[in-house]
Amino acid sequence: MMRHADRVVTRDMLLEHVWGYAFAPTTNIVESNMSRLRTRLVELGVDPIETQRGHGYVLRSGACA
């Protein structure tokens, strides 16, 4: 996501490039892991990941402390 900062990263892109999964999971693997990541980042005092409903996620470079 850092390499794609300020651009939308889709759920399928994350599945394929982060986990290397070539199949379609039936549960919210990406969503669950993303919310876990956001929780940790909020604990650190930043919240740079923005959810674009129906599209994917955007890492806002401006929001990184």
Binding site: W19, T27, N28, I29, E31, S32, N33, S35, R36
Partner: peptide, 10 residues
């Protein structure tokens, strides 16, 4: 590691 958050969400 990947699936732990999924099961936790359920």
């Amino acid at each position: 590691e990947t699936m732990e958050p999924v099961l936790a969400d359920h």
